[in-house]
């Protein structure tokens, strides 16, 4: 909350940028933005507050400022599971890092083909790609499980990783296709005249211009893979291999006793890398401005 409030600068801080007449609307805009920010921040604050409440008062002590503090949730939560919590963090980091690499490589290749190359069957394949996004995952669970079992991949990270290297997520391909299609065709023509083949054009011309799309893909991949629950649940059986969401869920039993305080503490711990990555990654969203200057 303080974060947004201190970031509500009166227009006076920036006198050169705006003539005096424009101060009022800008001030109002900041007030509205910050007010909205508080609404958006509330869940995080609540989570932090819950993480330092004793398990039994998480739901009965309604105040954001705990009546009783229990910082022990963090220490206990860190060590209560069969492996210390850093193991789960490391597992998740490995999976997330490789997934991002895989998604960026494989999806950008496919997206370039769909967006900039003309080849037989392009429309059909594109429709097929979209089609793969449309079938509810629940009915694929059993066939996929059988398939990965036949491949001998159960209880390994392969079922979680290999699909990312094979561009199986149409969302990212489609996203990049839309960004690439909005770049002018003259870029490719110029590159071709300079003697560039498709790959060189892709690597030297298109990729740098799509940085915001890549940053978006990396951020979304991080978040979705980091939070992914059902696939790791299915394919991992060795608790040492568990990812963070599986570990966090082990603090609770929805039909009985749960270690709420510990669960909230570790939920917050597991949220930190995501927030960190988002803040780091969004720099590259801004970088797009510089690159568009090329045009």
């Amino acid at each position: 909350m303080t974060l947004t409030e201190t970031r509500t600068p009166p227009a006076a801080i920036d006198p050169a940028a705006a003539p005096p007449v424009r101060r009022r609307p800008r001030f109002i805009r900041y007030v509205l933005l910050s007010g909205g920010g508080i609404v958006m921040m509330y869940p995080l604050l609540w989570m932090i507050s819950s993480s330092v409440k004793p398990s039994n008062s998480v739901f009965t002590d309604e105040s954001l400022w705990p009546a009783v503090f229990d910082f022990g949730n963090y220490a206990r939560g860190w060590t209560a599971l069969s492996a210390p919590f850093e193991v789960y963090l490391a597992n998740s980091l490995i999976i997330v890092t490789l997934s991002i690499v895989g998604n960026l490589l494989s999806c950008s290749l496919a997206a370039y083909a769909f967006a900039r190359l003309r080849f037989a069957g392009r429309k059909l394949f594109f429709a097929l790609m979209l089609g793969t996004m449309m079938l509810p995952g629940h009915v694929l669970v059993v066939p996929q499980y059988v398939m990965f079992d036949k491949l001998g991949w159960l209880n390994t990270y392969y079922p979680l990783l290999v699909p990312h290297f094979l561009a199986t997520n149409g969302f990212y391909i489609f996203l990049m296709v839309q960004f690439m299609r909005s770049l002018p065709q003259e870029l490719d023509d110029a590159a071709r005249i300079d003697g560039c083949g498709p790959f060189r054009t892709f690597w030297k011309v298109i990729m740098p211009l799509c940085l915001p799309a890549f940053a978006t893909t990396a951020i979304f991949t991080f978040i979705s893979v980091w939070n992914e629950f059902f696939s790791p649940l299915l394919y991992l059986t060795d608790p040492e291999l568990y990812t963070v969401p599986l570990a966090v869920r082990q603090f609770m039993d929805s039909e009985g006793q749960s270690m709420w305080g510990e669960m909230f503490a570790m939920s917050f711990v597991s949220l930190a890398p995501v927030i960190g990555f988002f803040i780091a990654g969004q720099k590259y969203l801004v970088k797009g401005i510089a690159t568009t200057g090329l045009r």
Binding site: L105, S106, F119, M129, L166, I173
Partner: peptide, 9 residues
């Protein structure tokens, strides 16, 4: 070229 780029896919 198109198919090559689509190979992973």
């Amino acid at each position: 070229a198109g198919y090559l780029f689509l190979l992973p896919w």
